[in-house]
Design a protein around this nucleic acid. Structure first.
Length: 300
DNA sequence: TCATATGATTCGTC
DNA sequence: GACGAATCATATGA
């Protein structure tokens, strides 16, 4: 057919009779033009291959190209490498096919004596390549699925993002709560998601004991310690026993802060609601504690 | 192998 | 919905 389209006269003898009959047909010129137009519109050289090999398993050429197209948004280097490999090998096969078909005209080719034999050989090559590449692609895709699950946890954020967020945090330790716009800006500049920024700051505040409840706790502890020490120093004799009791409890809390036991302690602004410690050993009579400590605080 | 650091997730509270 | 606390899962270094 290629010879017919090109007007090539060097066709094999056994095809000459058929060709002669075809060229005499009144519709031949129209048919020739239609075929030439269709072929020129083909996007891929693979789609014009006769006897295209296609088995039940694996992708065909078009499906494989679609897969590459679908995965291109991932910008994964392995996929890119595989796609480049596929394209290079495809071009090599088609170049060899073209050379072999040209060689047929002068009677020298290692891939068959006829055009169909040559095409059959290179179709098999192409099919083999497509099978190999599609299998590799499937393996890559399954590794993505696996890494996607694993990525749920604990992958180090990039150093630029860490640097940006750390600098911001250091500048704002007194109020380490970025606005939505600031979070988005840090996410954009650091190349991470806003959710990662939020999680990073939540972790940072929590692990540096700089959340609102923990800051409040710290401030209250300092204040109470200061009050009690001052009052003991000043010798409020009649309240000494009570102060001694309170001071012991405050010391327990302050010392326990350094232990591995983490308390969930919440205060109101006025300090009326006192610690609800999760450590059973650190539970006190907070009603007593609260009412008396507040009396001292009010004297400040 | 264990301790520690860290990103992510879950759950409860406001 | 944001935040805090707790917890999980993984990486890393001693």
């Amino acid at each position: 057919m290629a010879a017919i389209l090109k007007g090539d006269t060097t066709v094999l003898p056994k095809e000459k009779h058929l060709l002669s009959q075809l060229t005499q047909h009144p519709m031949f010129l129209d048919l020739k033009k239609t075929l030439a137009d269709d072929i020129s519109k083909m996007e891929s050289p693979f789609t014009v291959l006769p006897n295209k090999a296609k088995e039940n398993k694996g992708l065909d050429e078009g499906e494989l190209l679609d897969e590459f197209s679908n995965l291109s948004s991932l910008k994964n280097s392995k996929v890119s490498e595989l796609e480049t490999f596929y394209q290079t090998q495809s071009v090599t096969i088609e170049t060899q096919r073209s050379d072999a078909l040209s060689g047929l005209k002068v009677g020298k080719t290692n891939f068959g004596e006829t055009e169909s034999e040559v095409n059959k050989h290179f179709n098999e090559q192409t099919h083999h390549l497509v099978t190999r590449v599609s299998q590799s692609l499937e393996l890559l895709k399954s590794s993505f699925a696996l890494s996607g699950k694993e990525q749920k946890k604990s992958r180090q954020l990039n150093s630029r993002a860490i640097e940006i967020m750390s600098k911001w945090y250091e500048k704002h330790t007194d109020q380490p709560y970025p606005t939505e716009e600031q979070k988005q800006k840090m996410a954009d500049e650091g190349g991470i998601t806003i959710a990662q920024v939020k999680a990073w700051f939540a972790n940072k505040r929590n692990r540096t004991f700089n959340t609102r409840p923990k800051r409040q706790q710290r401030q209250l502890e300092q204040k109470l310690n200061s009050i009690c020490k001052d009052m003991i120093h000043e010798g409020h004799g009649k309240q000494y026993n009570m102060l001694d009791n309170i001071f012991d409890q405050i010391s327990d809390i302050v010392q326990d802060k350094t232990s591995s036991v983490q308390h969930s302690i919440r205060y109101t602004a006025a300090g009326t609601k006192l610690p609800v410690a999760r450590n059973l050993n650190a539970q006190y009579d907070m009603t007593f504690y609260s009412s008396n400590v507040n009396q001292y605080m009010n004297t400040m």
